[in-house]
C-alpha cells in the first residue's frame, strides 16, 4: 500500500501533503502541507481567491463534481490517500460531512431532511430518536419540534443552516467541513451556530472556512492563513498556505509579516 509508509500521529485527523489543486491548467492553490488535528476546530482564513474553499472541498472530494478540477499531492485520512484510485468518493463523503455557504435544505420535510442521509447510510436504529438527537445537537430542536412534517424551507435562514448542520451530524461523520456557514446569516444566528460548533467539537473534528476573523478567534483552536500572489508566467493569482498554528499565535504573534498585516486589517 502506498500510504503505509506515512506515519500519521494519532492526534492527526487529516494530513495534506504537497497538495496542489488546479482548475484546468490554472493552479488555484499550491504546495499545501498541513496536519489537521482530531477533535479540534480548525479555521481557514485569508483574502478572497486564495483557495481556502478549494482546499476545504478537496478534503471530502467535493471538487470531483467540478469539471476540470484536479489535485496533485496526497490527502491522508484514516491511513488512506483519499485520491487513491481505489477510494470510493461516496464513502469518503459519508465519513467527512459538509455544510455549505448557502443553507441548502432538501425540498422535503424537516424530518425527512435529517432521515435522508441516515437512511442512505443504512441506519437501522430508531429514526425518530436520531432526528431529535441531531436537531438537539445542532441547537435547532426547540424551533423545529412542533413542525417536523413541514417543509425545510419554512424555517428562517439561520434555522435552515442549523438544519443543514443537523443533517450533516445525522450521518455520524468523523469530520465536518463548513464553508463559510454564517456568511448568509445575521449576528444572532451566527452566534447560535458558533455555540453549536463548541458543542460539536467534543465529538467531531471541525474545519471551517471563514471571512470573519472574530469568528475564527471565537471558535477555532487552530488557524491556517492562506494568501494569494501573482506568479511569473501565470494567468492569475495562485493561493498558498502562509502560516498554520494555534489561533492565539496566528492572531497575537504571527511569524509572517503578511499574516500580521491581514489579521490586523492592514490589507485583505
Amino acid at each position: 500500500m502506498t500510504t503505509s509508509s506515512t506515519t500519521v500521529a494519532t492526534d492527526v485527523c487529516m494530513s495534506l501533503q504537497d497538495v496542489t489543486i488546479s482548475y484546468g491548467s490554472f493552479e488555484a492553490v499550491k504546495n499545501v502541507y498541513m496536519d489537521l488535528p482530531r477533535g479540534r476546530v480548525t479555521a481557514f482564513i485569508g483574502p478572497s481567491g486564495c483557495g481556502k474553499t478549494t482546499v476545504l472541498r478537496a478534503l471530502n472530494r467535493m471538487n470531483d463534481l467540478i469539471p476540470g478540477c484536479t489535485l496533485k499531492g496526497r490527502v491522508i485520512f484514516d491511513q488512506h490517500d483519499l485520491y487513491d484510485k481505489r477510494v470510493d468518493p461516496v464513502e469518503v463523503r459519508r465519513r467527512i460531512g459538509m455544510v455549505f455557504q448557502k443553507p441548502n435544505p432538501f425540498p422535503k420535510s424537516i424530518y425527512e431532511n435529517i432521515a435522508f442521509g441516515a437512511r442512505i447510510n443504512g441506519y437501522r436504529g430508531d429514526m425518530d430518536e436520531l432526528v431529535e438527537r441531531s436537531l438537539r445537537k445542532a441547537a435547532v430542536w426547540d424551533e423545529c419540534k412542533d413542525k417536523l412534517q413541514e417543509s425545510g424551507f419554512s424555517l428562517s435562514g439561520g434555522q435552515q443552516q442549523r438544519l443543514c448542520i443537523a443533517r450533516a451530524i445525522a450521518t455520524e461523520p468523523e469530520v465536518i467541513l463548513m464553508d463559510e456557514p454564517c456568511s448568509a446569516l445575521d449576528p444572532i444566528s451566527t452566534l447560535k451556530i458558533e455555540e453549536t460548533m463548541h458543542e460539536l467539537k467534543r465529538s467531531y473534528t471541525i474545519i471551517i472556512v471563514t471571512h470573519n476573523m472574530q469568528q475564527a478567534v471565537r471558535v477555532a483552536d487552530m488557524t491556517a492563513f492562506f494568501n494569494a500572489e501573482a506568479v511569473e508566467g501565470g494567468s492569475g493569482k495562485v493561493g498558498y498556505l502562509v502560516e498554520f498554528n494555534n489561533t492565539e499565535n496566528i492572531f497575537n504573534s504571527p511569524s509572517q509579516q503578511s499574516t500580521l498585516d491581514y489579521v490586523s486589517g492592514r490589507f485583505g
Binding site: 460531512g97 455549505f100 441548502n104 435522508f116 442521509g117 442512505i120 445525522a170
Partner: peptide, 15 residues
C-alpha cells in the same frame, strides 16, 4: 435545480 442541492446530497454521502 440549484447546484447546492446536489452538493448537499453528495455531502451526506449520497451516490
Amino acid at each position: 435545480v440549484p447546484q447546492e442541492l446536489r452538493w448537499g446530497a453528495y455531502g451526506v454521502g449520497a451516490s
